[in-house]
Structure formats: structure tokens, C-alpha cells
Amino acid sequence: MIIRDRELPVLELLRRQIAGVATEDELSRFRYPTAISRTLGIRLVAVELGSATVEIDTDPAIHGNQQGTVHGGLLTELADAAIGTAHSTVVGPGESFTSIDLRAVFLRPVWEDTLRATARPVHAGRTITHYSCEVVRGDGKAVAVVTSVVTTLSAARSHGR
């Protein structure tokens, strides 16, 4: 973890980014948007303490599997981005986090569409938090439900993360 002079709390920076008022010199202790989100085109659209919503525009020509539908790995990554963003808003100074379990249930196929993933905690303990994330199509129908267990790392366990 690198400490910077103009470091903002994660939640404040993310809210400023969504509002379109964040400047390039405004940073937080975590990198946002993440490299994988930039690469895939995942956008943060809403954030609150412990919850986050992200979107992506899908195209089977780019995100497709052998059947011509959007690959399940992309749906899982979208949910993981929402879950990680949600958890980053609740970790304290000197803490970091990592997923220790991630499970996806796929409900229906997706082709070209805008997908939205919303992550919320189901149970938050001192170090372990359980999340549920629903991924929906533009018509509001669920395409996947992803659950995750995230552990908060403190002190030496968080070093370098």
C-alpha cells in the first residue's frame, strides 16, 4: 500500500468519479478504476458504504464463448468487480482484503446487452464478509447470481496488497 499526499477515502473518491468531478491527482489507497475494469470496459455506476453497482456493454464478437453467447467468465468478473469495490469501501486504514470463495450460478444466456451487477453484503463479521451479487440484463432479468466470501487482512497480512 502506497500512501500519497492527496489520498482520499475510497468511498469519497469513488463517489467523485461517478459524479465526474474527480481530478487525476485525486487518489485513494486502492487503484480505481482497476486495470481489468479499464481493459474490459467495466464502469462503476453506484456506490455506498458496503455496496457497489457496475455495468458493462457486452458484444458476443468480443466477449463470446463457442456458442456465441457472452462467456460466463465475463459475468463472474463483472460480479467480482462489484464485490471487490463494495468491500473496498469498508476496510479500515492499514487493512486490505482478498476473496476466499466465489461461486456463480448462471440463469440465462446473454448476447449483446448492457449488464449491471449489484453487490451487497449478506453478513458482515469482523474479518469475514459474505456478499451476494445479482447480474441483470438491460430488460431487468437476472442472468447470474454470484456469491463471494471476502476476508479483511490486517497488519503484516495486508502488506503489499
Rank of each mutant, 00 (worst) to 15 (best):
G50N: 05
G50P: 03
G50A: 12
S51A: 15
S51W: 06
S51M: 10
V54F: 06
E55L: 10
E55H: 10
E55S: 12
E55F: 05
I56W: 04
D57Q: 13
D57E: 14
A61Q: 15
A61R: 15
I62E: 11
H63N: 06
H63Y: 13
H63I: 07
H63R: 09
G64N: 08
G64I: 05
N65M: 11
Q66A: 15
Q66P: 15
Q67P: 03
Q67F: 14
Q67C: 09
G68E: 05
G68L: 08
G68N: 03
G68K: 05
V70G: 01
H71R: 02
G73S: 13
L74S: 10
T76I: 09
T76R: 02
T76F: 10
T76P: 04
E77M: 15
E77S: 15
L78C: 01
L78Q: 06
L78G: 00
D80C: 12
D80M: 08
D80L: 11
A81F: 04
A81M: 09
A82W: 04
A82K: 03
I83P: 04
I83R: 08
G84D: 03
T85E: 00
H87E: 11
H87A: 08
V90R: 04
V90C: 00
V90M: 09
V91W: 01
G92D: 13
G92Q: 15
G92T: 14
P93I: 11
G94K: 07
G94E: 11
G94C: 01
E95H: 01
E95Q: 13
E95V: 01
E95D: 10
S96P: 03
F97G: 06
F97K: 05
T98K: 06
T98N: 11
